[in-house]
């Protein structure tokens, strides 16, 4: 039972139970396909979730609502730039990273210069980013270069490539969070901003870097998602706003900041996908499916919480 004391254990336990419940109904028929789909879709949630986790770790009030708009803009601009040409893959990737960095800088500029609460700053920013995406997209669906399309939709050694990318990013994020000075500074700011400042943490630099990191990961996720689904759509980021927050919290990171973990995000990402596919397998009506999804999220939070007292 010692493993259950780990904050991330609950999300994996929940994901495992849901997986079993689904396989049980299909009598194991689709277990391979289900696992592969779960890994693929969890990968996108994990990418945006990790960025959001770093932001949330910064402490109360820190949240990035511009994630969906950034995903859309990055996917749209990169595909437009590449225009299906193989030789443009690297410039496309660079454009994606450029979008991420620009959005992150703009977000923090608003937060810092105008002292707007992050939630409103990133919300206002997302309106502007969304407009740029609408303006540059114009409803034209440009196909991704063939090599990218096949890379994002195929697997290496039965593990989807996107999941491998997300895994690499997760490992890097884990090292960054737990073993680097930057990661420790992020956690310190989340635990107490004044204390961190007194201790000589470059608060502004760290926060700026975190918002840039979050936007860049969102841009990367948008880029991969648009290659995976054969083109960028204006609404493609929508579900990732709630998803990015949900995976962080279900994964066992503290909403009040200062304490987070990377593995839990994988458990939560898998859980969130598997829940939907389980309810689909059981052929529930859309309404019941939504209600059960909501109740299960709350139940997981109820179970996973209560390990720490003291309201922040």
């Amino acid at each position: 039972m010692k493993a259950l004391n780990r904050p991330w254990a609950w999300s994996f336990l929940a994901a495992g139970l849901v997986w079993l419940a689904t396989i049980w109904v299909t009598k194991g028929a689709a277990s391979g396909g289900l696992t592969e789909a779960a890994l693929t879709f969890a990968a996108f949630s994990v990418l945006v979730g990790i960025g959001q986790m770093f932001v949330i770790t910064l402490g109360p009030g820190n949240i990035d609502l511009s994630v969906p708009a950034t995903m859309t803009l990055a996917g749209t601009l990169a595909l437009k730039l590449m225009d299906g040409a193989e030789g443009m893959v690297i410039p496309g990737l660079l454009a994606t990273l450029g979008v991420g960095i620009a959005v992150g800088l703009a977000n923090y500029a608003l937060i810092k210069a105008l002292r707007i609460p992050p939630i409103i700053a990133t919300l206002s920013m997302s309106f502007i980013i969304q407009s740029i995406a609408i303006w540059s997209n114009r409803g034209i669906r440009i196909k991704p270069p063939e090599s990218l399309a096949s890379f994002t939709t195929s697997s290496t050694l039965t593990v989807p490539n996107v999941a491998l990318v997300a895994l690499a990013v997760s490992i890097a994020a884990w090292v960054l969070l737990n073993r680097s000075v930057y990661g420790r500074q992020v956690a310190a700011i989340g635990q107490s901003l004044p204390a961190a400042r007194m201790a000589g943490v470059p608060v502004d630099g760290v926060r700026l870097a975190t918002y840039v990191l979050c936007a860049t990961l969102a841009a990367l996720a948008g880029f991969l998602l648009s290659c995976f689904s054969g083109g960028a759509a204006l609404n493609m980021g929508n579900e990732y706003l709630l998803m990015s927050i949900a995976v962080v919290v279900i994964g066992g990171s503290a909403v009040a900041g200062g304490d987070s973990n990377v593995p839990g995000i994988w458990g939560a990402g898998l859980f969130m996908f598997l829940i939907v596919s389980m309810l689909n397998t059981y052929q529930f009506q859309a309404g019941y499916r939504l209600i059960l999804t909501g109740l299960i999220i709350i139940a997981v939070i109820l179970l996973a919480s209560g390990r720490k007292g003291g309201r922040p």
Partner: peptide, 19 residues
């Protein structure tokens, strides 16, 4: 239970939409 309101209401948003 000392829960984060953001997450509880996030879950409830699915419930209300479902209903």
């Amino acid at each position: 239970r000392n829960l984060p309101s953001i997450v509880v209401t996030l879950g409830m948003s699915f419930v209300w939409t479902g209903l």
